[in-house]
Design a protein around this nucleic acid. Structure first.
Lengths: 313, 313
DNA sequence: GTAATGTCTTTTATCGGGAAAAAACATTTA
DNA sequence: TAAATGTTTTTTCCCGATAAAAGACATTAC
């Protein structure tokens, strides 16, 4: 049951430097493009971190002979090699580590609905502190898969058929409404340009679907998020996080090879019809194209789920 | 800015005994009804706590001369007096203390949209640890009023008109669907009996609305939760938590005296029409009664909000 | 022998502490 | 004098520790 040293923040305690390591790796990739690095604030913006972290990165880059650093002068001395990078797994946030570990159990192992979730045990098995696990579970609870018993344990509600049905019910309600709102967007709204760009990406992917079918998942998310953004409703927008999470892990562990390729190919086609409908701004067309796509998305999800219905309270 | 000793778990550290104190107070009320307390497991079930806590309660009751406790024998010696009770504020969960304190700032103080929320400062002002504040904020974030900047502060999105509109949009979508589902419930479903009971409560309240109008709020929540339960969708059911939270604090700090009385009286009437419609099982009638009520609920919420529209990202 | 009480173990809720990262302030440089 | 760098302070993130509370096991009583 025990998964050895999954995480484990070195020897000591406290925070862990994944922000630094991740930014460092990304900064290494910047080195290929220039002879001279920009100012500290600029680098901070580019990497999405504070100047404190930027300076820590520059410090190490100087130590390892990657750059010459003297105040404003940050000259690149050599191209980074494989060894300069921090290992991928050290760049993940604790939150991601816990989530992945938790989801693996949920989808792989015999995680029957109704079982108890033990914070302490989870923390020990993943190799992190209890606080992090608690915070993760609280954040995760909004996905509707776990539930807290006051002053006591969490209960797993299970990744059941019933869950999938409830999820898709809301999804369909929200997407239909968002799609309708999208079609009503004024012509000068930037969303139309974004839609055109996505359409082009869809057409490009369609041409080489045989080899690039696995790229669909990411495109799919961006497409649906764009639609949902037209709702201008934070609850609708936020709800897509639930869908994205489910799809992310579901695809990751349920890849079906040829079948997946076929589904993605079909989905690309549906998206293109959907996009055409939106561009026509014809409410009825939008509604029908949206329904069509949602129906097959629902089927895709449901066919890969255990048939045994979970009796819910 | 500092709110003195809001909470403050005595002197030491660690957990705080609000579960014990709350259960103790509730147990005191049980003392009036019997001469002899039931077994420990039975008491635990009645109070919703473990035997460990029950025994702690019995221990103190013996010490203070409320009962004679010898194994199975738990004889009541005297009726509890005011002094026997723990102060109300000590029976609240830390979570509740933090929530109340936070909501007060949000609704009273000048909490403009966009301001930063500081975990440390909040923790110090309320007088609790940072972990509890963090956990609260994570839990609270699902209400859509705050948002986290990774590795940085939280941002207050504000209790704005825009928030109210987004909230009611979802509310209406969900309630319309739930109401329709309710009307389709088989006649032997226990929900119908529950509806009858609620109808009776409504009629009783209607008769003495002049004096008991403040009791409506609680009845309102039970009524709508019953409707939503017919959806058999956890996301719909859970969403009512957002609405309930908003209404709870909103009413608490925006009582408008006579105006509130009028609104509640009107709402009771709307509920009764709504209930009749449900009982008729006529989809069109249900839809129209539901819409009617939601419309006035929306108006009530919006009229009490700052008119200045909050421009959202 | 079942259901209570008595005792011991495990888990949860909460705190304070400390390193990582951000943010604020001070100083220098173009 | 504005934008950089240098320095200090504050805040976030995460851990381990500890009392409260739950839960499990052992014993007793009806």
């Amino acid at each position: 049951m025990l998964i050895a040293g999954q995480a484990g923040n070195g020897e000591g305690m406290s925070k862990g430097k994944n922000v630094y390591k991740d930014a460092y790796n990304r900064c290494l990739r910047l080195l290929d493009e220039t002879r001279q690095l920009p100012s500290e604030p600029e680098l901070g913006t580019a990497l999405g971190v504070s100047r404190t972290t930027v300076r820590a990165i520059l410090g190490r880059m100087q130590e390892t002979g990657l750059i010459e650093w003297n105040k404003r002068d940050k000259t690149v001395l050599r191209a980074p090699v494989e060894q300069d990078f921090f290992p991928e797994e050290e760049t993940d946030t604790l939150s991601q580590v816990i989530e992945r570990s938790f989801m693996r159990r949920l989808l792989e192992g015999g995680a029957e609905a109704g079982i108890q979730i033990n914070e302490l045990e989870l923390a020990r098995e993943i190799g992190v502190g209890t606080t992090s696990v608690r915070e993760f579970l609280i954040r995760f609870s909004r996905f509707g898969l776990i539930e807290k018993r006051r002053n006591s344990h969490w209960v797993l509600k299970g990744f059941t058929r019933s869950f999938a049905l409830e999820l898709t019910e809301i999804r369909e309600m929200f997407e239909l409404r968002s799609a309708a709102a999208f079609a009503r967007l004024p012509v000068d709204n930037p969303a139309w340009a974004a839609l055109d760009a996505l359409e082009a990406e869809h057409r490009a992917l369609q041409k080489s679907i045989a080899t690039r079918f696995s790229e669909f998942s990411e495109l799919d998310e961006r497409f649906h998020r764009l639609i949902h953004s037209a709702s201008h409703n934070r609850f609708i927008v936020d709800f897509y996080d639930v869908i994205a999470m489910i799809f992310h892990y579901h695809y990751q562990w349920n890849k079906a090879g040829e079948r997946e390729r076929q589904r993605n190919e079909a989905a690309v086609g549906e998206h293109l019809v959907y996009i055409e409908a939106l561009k026509s701004r014809d409410a009825a067309k939008v509604d029908s194209a949206c329904r069509m796509h949602l129906k097959s998305a629902r089927r895709t999800l449901l066919t890969s789920m255990p048939e045994a219905a979970g009796a819910e309270g």
